[in-house]
């Protein structure tokens, strides 16, 4: 499989008052097209920061981030926004849906930035809601949906513009076991049947089992790279 995400010597430092906190320390990583990668690690290990940098939500302190042949660390704010709209779908732990919009309108949001006509946008939204099993809930507002259903709407919003990459930050962190399994099944279908490349941060080893491989981060460094069924035994420098 060809590499979709290529990261070289990626660093990120946050400043909290006079204190400097180095969150990522020279990460090297390759993620293939069509891969499903879980990122695990203790709190503060830099998982979400890594995800934010791959998704173009934050700028690195140093190093390179290349996604689908595009050096996104070199893009300016406006270019990065356009790039995100076309290439990445985001799924958050707390869904982050617009409370006053229906499921249909929430899913349509990324398409507002495209040149699609209203009728085409509506059709794409309906197909996507059907894919996540919520066609009959399209007129419901978030507060009229269960947590699992809200996360399905969020996934529909993430994939409606057919992005290259799906970035999920603890997508099951706020769900009960049953709903979590449904969401993970859905992500697996999107990966296996629709070829979506997925990077998912999780604390849950059971959730990580749905991925093809798991990366372990600790104190800003990649500690291990495990294929399905393997266990952590030694830190490695590059993957």
């Amino acid at each position: 499989m060809s590499s979709l995400v290529t990261i070289r010597q990626l660093t990120k430092t946050y400043h909290r008052g006079p204190e400097k906190i180095q969150v990522l320390r020279g990460i090297d990583l390759d993620i293939s097209r069509g891969d499903f990668v879980a990122v695990m690690g203790p709190s503060g290990s830099g998982k979400t920061t890594l995800l934010n940098l791959i998704g173009g939500l934050d700028a690195p302190g140093g190093g390179e981030v290349e996604v689908d042949g595009q050096r996104i660390d070199q893009l300016k704010d406006g270019q990065l926004a356009n790039w995100r709209n076309g290439h990445v779908g985001f799924v958050f732990q707390f869904y982050n849906l617009m409370p006053t919009l229906t499921a249909q309108k929430n899913v349509e949001l990324p398409l507002l930035l495209t040149k699609l006509r209203s009728s085409q946008r509506k059709r794409n939204v309906e197909v996507t809601l059907q894919l996540v099993g919520l066609a009959d809930r399209k007129s419901h507002r978030p507060n009229e949906l269960s947590g699992g259903q809200q996360q399905r709407v969020a996934i529909a919003r993430a994939i409606v513009s057919d992005p290259t990459l799906l970035i999920c930050d603890e997508p099951t962190g706020d769900l009960d076991r049953h709903s979590a399994e449904e969401i993970l099944d859905l992500l697996q279908i999107l990966n296996r049947e629709h070829g979506k490349t997925i990077i998912m941060v999780t604390h849950d080893p059971k959730a990580a089992e749905y991925a093809n491989r798991t990366l372990h981060l600790d104190k800003g460094e990649l500690m291990a790279h495990l294929d399905k069924g393997e266990k952590v035994d030694a830190p490695v420098a590059s993957y």
């Binding site: 998704g55 926004a81 790039w83 930035l113 919003r157």
Partner: peptide
């Protein structure tokens, strides 16, 4: 919510 809009690709100006 505004942060989510930016995440989805809405520019600062938008």
């Amino acid at each position: 919510e505004l942060a989510v809009l930016k995440t989805l690709g809405f520019t600062n100006r938008a």
